[in-house]
Nucleic acid binder design. Structure first.
Lengths: 233, 233
DNA sequence: GTGCCAAGAATGGCATACCATTTTGGTCCT
DNA sequence: AGGACCAAAATGGTATGCCATTCTTGGCAC
């Protein structure tokens, strides 16, 4: 029931285009599974049996297996020999490590963006920032989350470094679920907002060091509390 | 003729254990292809036709296809729909971007290593460093290269951050070939050696900022010249 | 002679069948 | 009653076959 029609059914949960059309079946399956894992429709640790999944998705096992291999190298599922694939469970330690790397990548991105971005790009960032601030004042967590993601992603995109962008997107996916949950119950909302102000100020003044530092610090604070104990879901 | 016996024939070109034994066929194939790509036994742009490769490797197309999908997500090959897989050609721009990210990752690793590594770990790093210096004085580029890699990898390993280690290993692989070639014709060898001295000094004095900065600077210098023009091979 | 079109050959995409390993449930022995 | 062992079912791993698409080449027309 939740399945059928791989490319249409899922209302795009991630920002990035899924470009499902006219792409190979494996890509469709991989995108489908990726989204559902990332959106927490599959619990971590849940097994992904090939045959049953194949009939549910109306595809054969071959493309499904290839998709699972891809997701495995992306770190979203774990494949054990002769045991099959399960949705990767991210321990608090994993989250901590990956969040740290994410902060490092975004720091680097901020530095590059300060140097490479056009004035219009920065202006657009600020526009998004004020939109987000409006959501903050209205206590609209949903829209705030979306805009927050948009801003972070755009800063990375503006860096102009494709390798950096790809690695960031990959890591970002793996943390999507916990990031979403984090947003829901964030008590330090006002603090996060202030940090964003500082980030924007540094970007506006084109200070790479400062912008990078602020962004890394912001991410560090945002994530640390989820790294120490307390169940993820 | 160069093939047959996937797991034995290849004399381990990379440091990391290939753990070929009792691993699935896809892993063997993936490791095999990875090594040969990384060691430049396959030219960039070279096609990798499934059937012919399959008979050469004495495996069926299915595990080969899955291995290629893995290598594709790792960025070592590019798969076009209905066109098949080709060895990814890394443009100078790609090298520049990836090298930049690599430098950022190693910078972060150095910071963490300053904090987390034991005194014995640092001592071992210094031992390797002096071994490398000996190779430098003897003008033994081959051994110098091996030790240089060993040191960089160990600094990252000592960071203790698995996510960081994995991403670094992945990027490092993609740059292995050009790094090797870079080592062969590096005129600024003495300078590189001095930079390594500075890195070690910062590590010894446990100065995260300094160690990170030195390492990033070192990598930046090492790679920039290969990023601007001039053919890779 | 050159350019275009068509037919066939080559190649990748997907499905399925078969084999190996693992898991599980039941029975028998202690 | 409990544990160990064996068999059968489930599941992943590999091989192969067929279909769709793309590349190639030979011939025809301009």
């Amino acid at each position: 029931m939740p399945f059928l029609a791989l490319d249409s059914g899922v209302s795009n949960p991630m920002e990035e285009a899924v470009q499902s059309s006219h792409a190979g079946l494996v890509e469709k399956v991989a995108n489908y599974l990726r989204e559902h894992i990332v959106m927490d429709h599959f619990q971590p640790g849940q097994r992904l049996p090939e045959r049953t999944l194949a009939v549910e998705l109306q595809v054969s096992r071959t493309p499904l297996r290839e998709a699972l291999k891809i997701l495995a190298t992306e770190g979203l599922v774990v494949i054990s020999p002769h045991r099959g694939a399960v949705v990767a469970e991210v321990s608090p330690a994993d989250i901590k490590e990956k969040a740290y790397v994410l902060s490092v990548l975004e720091q680097a991105a901020a530095e590059l963006t300060c140097i490479n971005a056009s004035d219009d790009d920065i202006a657009e960032l600020q526009a998004l920032h004020y939109e987000m601030k409006a959501c903050f004042l209205r206590r609209d967590r949903q829209s705030y989350f979306r805009l927050n993601q948009e801003i972070h992603n755009r800063i990375v995109a503006l860096s102009g470094n494709s390798a950096l962008i790809d690695m960031h997107a990959n890591l970002s996916r793996q943390l999507y679920r916990v990031r979403y949950l984090s947003n829901q119950k964030n008590e330090k909302w006002a603090t996060a907002m202030e940090e964003h102000e500082a980030i924007m100020a540094a970007l506006e003044s084109r200070d790479p060091e400062q912008a990078g530092r602020e962004l890394r610090n912001h991410l560090g604070k945002t994530w640390i509390k989820y790294a120490n104990g307390e169940p993820i879901a």
